[in-house]
Each structure stands twice: as structure tokens, then as C-alpha cells.
Design a protein around this nucleic acid. Structure first.
Length: 466
RNA sequence: GGCGGAGUAGCCAAGUGGGAAGGCCGAGGUCUGCAAAACCUCUACGAGUGGGUUCGACUCCCACCUCCGCCUCCA
């Protein structure tokens, strides 16, 4: 079954066909963080979605080469560094490090490349691209010494967002005093240095300055992936103007169709409202970890709604995520115990796993996919209860789970049981043999206090992390 | 004003022109010393509102209401 993805450009769900003539490799560019702050869970929703996309494509046999850029020079990073009284590179390094920690916490696969805008080879490429655009008469230097993209030279600008530029309403974000530009929509390719930039400056044919945000992505994307790529992702708010600008710049330079499939992730809401610091509903990953939630629980909560729908993020949703994961955990433990060392043999419930992947083929329909997973869990648990599942079949279901979890990355990490806990369990078993229920219950509480749940089963006590 | 997305149970949410998935929470039951887990049963006669098309609409069409996003450097 082919993978079908919704393309923002066409507003249609399209069969995904990679550029690679062999149909094997996939080139994917994903807009990464601007490292001026800790990323918030809205940012991470997009990264988790991109991770799901990558993993599903890999599950379907594609080799994904993924680029995620780091924007480490722009207005916000400069302002942040200035406020902090630090050099830009030192300031952004803190948030780069934090970002990598955070994506590990959320089990987001590392991209193949994490280019940073300030790396000399990319700055050089940005300058080369702007130079070319200038030679083509597409870029021009204005009186303020900055270099702008001449929108009149790229009529397709606005096609991705389906905006008619003639009908744009002037908003507060447009400074109408920017008389230096020929056209109010012309965007900056190179920003001339000014005092507020401090020592953030690169030499260029147009004087000292720094690159505009849009050209950073065009340069990094085409430098690594070439002039054409299969997939470009980002948040919906990047569609206009950022991705429009990327198209305009890249295609003007290369003469080739920049991106085949544009995928955009909808916004995340918190408690039904836009997340904002003033509303007090602003969450970073760190905040949530401090509240006792784990990375995989947050991953689950961010993943369970289709990426094109707004996601309402709540603490209750995290509780539901925890419970659902617990159900998966228990199921795996049961299967493992039952399977033992048995070699996998065809299981009667294999269709569920296939439906799981088939659902993801349909523009990553994760809700439907998870429903098939839970059907599988319920039915195989029932089969185990009825002793109708052989160890070999349990082993086969575990193998299916491994494939599924290759996409979901939900599996609990196995923790070694401390000797202290084992000793308490031992003591408790003695108490139970003596029918000293009071001591038994107290020992259970002590074990729980150490972070472990003990369950009495027919086969003796079982421990699981809390 | 332009463009776009969304309204399905207490919460999250799927698919579908003809029986309304799945998860969480809740109730009852089986099992258990008690729990926990698992399993079983129950939990929307109704899909924002009002019309229309149809033998039949949650699904298609129209209008309206509400929420959200973008409209020139926010994922």
C-alpha cells in the first residue's frame, strides 16, 4: 500500500513518490528551533510529528535523509544574547544543548544533519545565493544597505499559502515606514549591520551584516540535500511567509522545483487556549518533567492526534497517556513471560499490526493506528486469559510489537530492580505465607515508596516500575 | 476584510450515504487475603444550530453560531 500524504501546496492527499528513481531514499528538510530559549511543547509537537513521519517512512522501507536546521542567528537570538550580556555563540550554545537533551527525552530520532546557520560554509552559501540573485536582478540592495528579494520577480510567491498578495491587509507587523524597500512585501536576504547587532557581523559584498532568516533555510537545505527534496515540514505558521520565501529564493537560484511535498503541523492549544506566557499555560518540556511526567508520556500525548488537527494539550491528557502506556507495558510483560524463548510462529492476530501500518499510510492517521494496536492488545490479552495463545504465537506478537514500536517509540525502558526492593519483596512473601496481611500491606507500601509496584500473580509476585 | 482549520459521550478522538472505532475516567462483575493487572458487561437513540437533497444524513448542499490559526522573520 502506498503512503499518502496531504500536501499543503495542492491541498490534496497525494500518493508519496520519492524523487529517487530507485524509490528508496527520501530527502526531508524540517525547520528546527531558533535557539534563543528552551523550546516549548508546541515546538515539540512539530518535531514529534516529523519523527513519526520519518519512522513510518522507514518502516515502509525508505531510507530517510533528514535535515533539521538550528537557527542560531536572527533578531531574537541577538536580542537574547544582548540581554544576557553574552556572546551570541555562547548564548545559543546553552539552548542548542538543551534542545538535544529534549529531543532525546522525547525519543525523537536524531536527524542525519543538524546544520547551524552560523557555520561558515552555510554563511558562504547564503552569500553566494544572494550574489546570484543579485546578478539575476532578483535581489537588490536598498538605501539602508540591506539586500532584499524583489517579489515582483517571483510571481508564484503566495502560491503555497494560497494568498493573493494584492488583497493582503496591512497589519501592525508591517512597518510602513520601511521606505527603503521597493515593495512592502520584499523580504530581507541580508540585513545590514547596526549597533544593536554588536559583534554579530559577517563581511559580505554588501558590507557588514547578517543573513535574513529565510535565506538561512534555503542555503542549508540546498547545500545538504541538493536543489530538490521530497518533503519539507514545519508548523502551519511557517507557511507564510517563511516557506514561501524559501521557495522563491531556492527556485530562483536553482531553477528546479524545490519541494515535492509540503507538510505542516497544526498548532497546539493548552486548555483550549493559545499557549502564552501571560495566560500561565506555557509549558516547556522541562516544566512537565518537573511535574513528574516522563518523556514518553509527553510523546504519547503529543502524538495521539493527527498532525493536521489542532491539539488541545492538557494535564488530564497526560494522565490518560500514562494510563494507556501502562496498558501497553503490562501487555508486553505478559507476552514476554508467556513467550519465553519460543521461536515466533504465525499468530492469529497478525492482521491488527498490518492495519496499524495501513492506517499510518493514510496521512499518518495515528488515531486509527492506535485503535488497531489496542484491539490487538485486548484480543491477545483475552486469548492469554483463555490459554489460547501458544508461546510461539506470543513471540510472534512481540515481534509485531517491535515493528510497531519502531514507529511509536513508546516502549518502557527496562530498569534494573534494586537489591533493596528485591529484599523487601522476599520479606513480603514470607509475611504472605504467614498470612500476616498487615505486614504484607505495609511492605507493599514500602516497596511503592521506592518506586516499584508489586503485584501478586499466580506465578508469584511481579514488580513493575511506578 | 482575505485565506485556512475545527465543533462527535465527563475528557481525548476515528471512520463512514444505511450497524457511531479506539483510549482515559466512571459503574457492576470474574479473579485475589486485600490490592494491582487482565478479562467480561454497561456508559452518545444521537453528532454546534436551523434548513435542504435523499427511501435513508453524523457523513452531501446552504445558512447561521462558536472556537482557533495565518495575513510579511512564531512550530
Amino acid at each position: 500500500m502506498p503512503v499518502r500524504l496531504f500536501n499543503t501546496y495542492s491541498r490534496q492527499t497525494e500518493v508519496f513518490i520519492p524523487l529517487d528513481p530507485a524509490g528508496k531514499s527520501v530527502k526531508m528538510y524540517t525547520c528546527g528551533p531558533t535557539v534563543y530559549n528552551h523550546a516549548h511543547i508546541g515546538n515539540f509537537r512539530a518535531y514529534v510529528f516529523e519523527d513519526l513521519l520519518q519512522r513510518h517512512l522507514e518502516a515502509r522501507g525508505y531510507a530517510v535523509e533528514r535535515v533539521m536546521n538550528l537557527t542560531d542567528v536572527d533578531d531574537k537570538t541577538i536580542r537574547g544574547a544582548r540581554t544576557a550580556g553574552r556572546r551570541l555563540a555562547d548564548f545559543t550554545q546553552v539552548y542548542k544543548d538543551a534542545f538535544f537533551q529534549d529531543i532525546d527525552t522525547l525519543r525523537i530520532k536524531r536527524a542525519s544533519h543538524f546544520p547551524a546557520a552560523t557555520e561558515p560554509r552555510y554563511i558562504e552559501r547564503m552569500i553566494a545565493m544572494i550574489t546570484q540573485l543579485e546578478e539575476q536582478g532578483i535581489a537588490y540592495q536598498a538605501d539602508d544597505k540591506s539586500v532584499y528579494f524583489r517579489l515582483a520577480k517571483f510571481p508564484a510567491y503566495g502560491a503555497l499559502a494560497h494568498l493573493n498578495l494584492d488583497e493582503l491587509r496591512p497589519s501592525g507587523r508591517v512597518n510602513s515606514d520601511e521606505y527603503e524597500k521597493e515593495n512592502i512585501g520584499d523580504f530581507a536576504l541580508w540585513k545590514a549591520w547596526d549597533e544593536a547587532d554588536g559583534d554579530v557581523r559577517w563581511d559580505s559584498p554588501w558590507g557588514a551584516g547578517r543573513p535574513g532568516w529565510h535565506i538561512e533555510c534555503s542555503a542549508m537545505a540546498t547545500a545538504i540535500l541538493g536543489p530538490e527534496m521530497d518533503i519539507h515540514c514545519g508548523g502551519v505558521d511557517n507557511i507564510f511567509p517563511h516557506h514561501e520565501a524559501e521557495i522563491a529564493q531556492s527556485e530562483s537560484c536553482t531553477g528546479k522545483k524545490f519541494v515535492r511535498h509540503w507538510l505542516h503541523c497544526a498548532h497546539l492549544m493548552v486548555d483550549g487556549q493559545k499557549m502564552s506566557k501571560s495566560l500561565g499555560n506555557f509549558h516547556t518540556l522541562r516544566d512537565l518533567l518537573a511535574k513528574g511526567f516522563t518523556g514518553r508520556e509527553i510523546r504519547y500525548a503529543l502524538l495521539t492526534v493527527n498532525y493536521r488537527l489542532p491539539l488541545n494539550f492538557t494535564l488530564a491528557g497526560l494522565d490518560a497517556a500514562r494510563a494507556a502506556l501502562g496498558r501497553i507495558d503490562e501487555w508486553i510483560v505478559r507476552l514476554r513471560e508467556h513467550a519465553g524463548d519460543a521461536a515466533p510462529a504465525a499468530a492469529p492476530l497478525a492482521a491488527h499490526a498490518e492495519k496499524f501500518f495501513a492506517s499510518l499510510d493514510e496521512d499518518l492517521n495515528i488515531s486509527a493506528a492506535l485503535s488497531h494496536l489496542f484491539d490487538l492488545i485486548r484480543e491477545s490479552n483475552a486469548a492469554l486469559d483463555r490459554a489460547e495463545l501458544s508461546p510461539a504465537q506470543a513471540a510472534a506478537l512481540l515481534a509485531d510489537w517491535q515493528r510497531i514500536d519502531g514507529v511509536l517509540a513508546f516502549q518502557r525502558e527496562s530498569a534494573a530492580i534494586p537489591a533493596e526492593v528485591l529484599a523487601l519483596v522476599e520479606k513480603r512473601q514470607q509475611a504472605r505465607t504467614d498470612k500476616d496481611w498487615k505486614a504484607s500491606d505495609q511492605l507493599r507500601d514500602e516497596i511503592a515508596a521506592l518506586g516499584w509496584i508489586v503485584k501478586d500473580t499466580k506465578d508469584g509476585p511481579k514488580l513493575s516500575p511506578r
